[in-house]
Design a protein around this nucleic acid. Structure first.
Lengths: 234, 234
DNA sequence: CGCCAGGTTGATTTCGCTCAAGCAATGTGG
DNA sequence: CCACATTGCTTGAGCGAAATCAACCTGGCG
């Protein structure tokens, strides 16, 4: 299965691998496809290895005890799933559900561990990656607890802009949202209805415009202003 | 400064160190004392190394743009501060403020990095530690966003119980709270007044009793029940 | 003794949730 | 092709939880 060889993404972690290691991984990686809606793994499942997404989109979410769900990540082409429980030697603490059809390669934990023990650079890269992820998680906690919905939504839009936004000639930005309102809501920890209302408010304020899964950021400077200055002009 | 040698805590990370490495660290570790209220490092400072707490208590908190503060950790004897920014190669994203007088050893980043590159087991232990921390952070986000104050407060009390609780003969638990209401409130992301009220509610329900910095968990079974079953009997 | 920080309480407001309905787009079976 | 479900999104009314603002304790401590 040499085809997988050239598919390793250009991330710091994979770049630390030697040619031999890449070839070995290509041999043992099990590739398969998932359709939208399928679960790649489920919360509380044992973690048997990691998943490299070659193509598609996956949402990683966490369920509370009474069905309360929160989305932790959107994982796309080039992203790796399940490395946290693998490194923590824990069961999965979240579920991975396919949003758009996926092609995924699975690497068994034992193989990755072997590389980790031999290739110090690989471990260092993972340490860095994890540490940054932890920083993001802590910021998100801070934001969830201190910031209003409006702020969190604007923030989410800017995050989505990175991957799904394209600049228009007039300076506005077009977002091709890959996810439903439900998913958006659960990323910032609110109900769908509340999200819907807040979108209306932003629209009324002339900051954005929504139509289905398309969104325009009409006034990027003002959006960014609000996020840093937090000047409420109501 | 061989005195520091025997002070390495019995955590998985330090246990991976060889005798030679411990001795080397003891040589280069700079020990000093901090008084309550002092800052060990400040958000946005450059991260120059890590801090091992030999004694005392430190609160790690993060400030938003408009003075909104959230407490991320309480670090005690044996805990390490600043390893996240060190591994992430970022500036500090939080401040560390002394709650109770501390004795702290500082290790410069370059020395730790040297060990990391030589001792794979040390790196693996850190990977595991970080990954678990990340799991905690994600759970906290989930909890902050989906759970009510009451739930979060009960949870906090059980967390504090681990280090500051002592069982009484009658089955109750006595907590010697090391922190102020302000600090408690900022750990669960609410205002002090709101915390105060919730404490009263819990007291009225016969679950706890508070007096200054002492708290009794009067009915542990019911507290634990509420946390898993989430049966609201109001 | 008065001061002051930390803590509590009360009144009011605001934000987001719940419950319920409506609506548009899509699918499905007769 | 139409009648009818289904699904995703929006809107409204009312409610409840926590924030805000303000006053008031309380216990150390100079």
């Amino acid at each position: 299965m040499a085809s997988a060889l050239k598919t390793f993404p250009e991330t710091p972690e994979w770049q630390t691998l030697t040619l031999a290691e890449r070839e070995a991984l290509s041999e043992i990686g099990r590739q398969r496809r998932y359709r939208a809606g399928e679960l790649i793994f489920h919360q509380d499942d044992e973690c048997c290895g990691i998943y490299l997404i070659l193509e598609g989109l996956v949402s990683v979410h966490k369920n509370g005890l009474e069905g309360n769900m929160v989305t932790l990540h959107l994982a796309r082409e080039g992203d790796v799933l399940g490395y946290r429980p693998f490194l923590a030697e824990q069961h999965h603490l979240a579920s991975a559900q396919v949003v758009r059809d996926c092609s995924v390669v699975f690497f068994a934990a034992s193989h990755i561990k072997k590389i980790l023990l031999k290739n110090v650079e690989f471990g260092m890269a993972l340490l860095r990656r994890e540490a940054r992820e932890l920083g993001v998680a802590e910021s998100r906690f801070q934001e969830a607890v201190t910031q209003h919905l409006r702020h969190r939504l604007l923030n989410l839009l800017l995050v989505l802009k990175k991957h799904y936004g394209s600049g228009l000639p007039n300076g506005e930005v077009l977002l091709d949202l890959p996810i439903s309102r439900q998913e958006m809501a659960s990323m910032i920890g609110v109900r769908v209805e509340t999200l819907s209302r807040e979108i209306r408010h932003l629209t009324n304020d002339g900051l954005v415009e929504f139509s289905g899964h398309r969104a325009w950021l009409k006034d990027l400077p003002r959006i960014e202003d609000e996020l840093v200055a937090k000047v409420h002009t109501h």
